[in-house]
């Protein structure tokens, strides 16, 4: 016997197989087209499938029928690239606090009806169906989400010790994958959690101190320019965030912002 992993594997969920579901999916031809919810029936879904594998099954059928498959973003399919993300029954990334690609069909029951919509925020225009353009996030980073250190100019890595607690807290904030679920879930469509995660990450590292004031005022100015809503501390963002970025980061951002403004930092126009 050779160890063949693809064909000879029985499906351990076989006996459980056969979920039948009703999907209501937002279909929109292009950025300017009008969209609407369209209903699809899908059968024989294994509980071990990921949510995106379920959509793959649907799309294979649509292609063969000569219909337009549902466009949705995804890449790594292991919860780390931040490319995937849709509203599932009114929740960003669905009922579990994870990414859409890591959501598995065992979270649903036979006969369920599932509504699937794109992230909705004017700075995230729809490209097609469920895929949106999230480059506004990159522009927020461009406004100051970095430490200016040209290649080759760095001192020895041990030159500046960093207290473990700071480094760990910075890491927690740095795990934001830029998926946009926070914006999608926020009733104000605010990008505060995303911005706060980066401000917190860099603000906690000694290397991030020189640009700390400018960073926060410029990133905030940029997120306003992009047209995101303001944060009123509702907390939907953090509850939807697949990386569990905490509300504390927002407080920290505000703290830095007030400090920066007091110190006279003003956004570049």
């Amino acid at each position: 016997m050779t160890a063949s992993m693809q064909s000879s594997v029985g499906n351990p969920g076989a006996e459980k197989r056969g979920m039948n579901l009703t999907l209501r999916i937002w279909r929109q031809q292009g950025p300017t087209a009008k969209g609407k919810m369209v209903t699809y029936k899908i059968t024989d879904i294994s509980p071990d499938m990921s949510f995106l594998e379920m959509l793959d099954v649907l799309n294979e059928q649509l292609i063969l029928q000569g219909d337009d498959p549902v466009a949705f973003d995804h890449d790594c399919r292991e919860g780390i690239c931040g490319m995937c993300g849709v509203m599932i029954n009114g929740q960003a990334h669905g009922p579990q606090q994870t990414t859409t690609c890591q959501l598995h069909m065992r979270s649903f029951k036979d006969g369920d009806s599932i509504d699937i919509e794109p992230w909705r925020a004017s700075p995230f225009p729809v490209i097609k169906d469920l895929a949106v353009d999230r480059r506004a996030f990159d522009r927020i980073i461009q406004a100051g989400g970095y430490i200016s250190v040209p290649t080759g100019t760095a001192p020895d890595a041990h030159a500046t010790p960093v207290p473990k607690a700071d480094s760990d807290a910075a890491f927690d904030a740095a795990t934001c994958i830029g998926c946009g679920a926070c914006v999608a879930a926020c009733p104000n469509a605010s990008s505060m959690l995303f911005t706060a995660a980066k401000v917190t990450h860099l603000g906690l590292m000694p290397q991030g101190q020189p640009e700390r004031n400018d960073r926060v005022v410029n990133m905030i100015a940029q997120q306003d320019r992009e047209g995101f809503g303001g944060c009123t501390n509702i907390g939907e963002c953090s509850a939807a965030c697949p990386k569990g970025i905490s509300m504390e980061t927002i407080s920290r951002l505000n703290h830095d912002l007030l400090g920066a403004l007091r110190a006279g930092a003003r956004p570049k126009s």
């Binding site: 209501r24 509203m87 919509e117 004017s122 939907e236």
Partner: peptide, 21 residues
């Protein structure tokens, strides 16, 4: 803030569930 939020999400969700609110 209210107006900014409206502008930031002109198209509303068909289904939206509150979790932390």
């Amino acid at each position: 803030l209210w107006r900014q939020a409206k502008r930031a999400r002109p198209e509303r969700y068909v289904t939206k569930k509150a979790v932390a609110q």
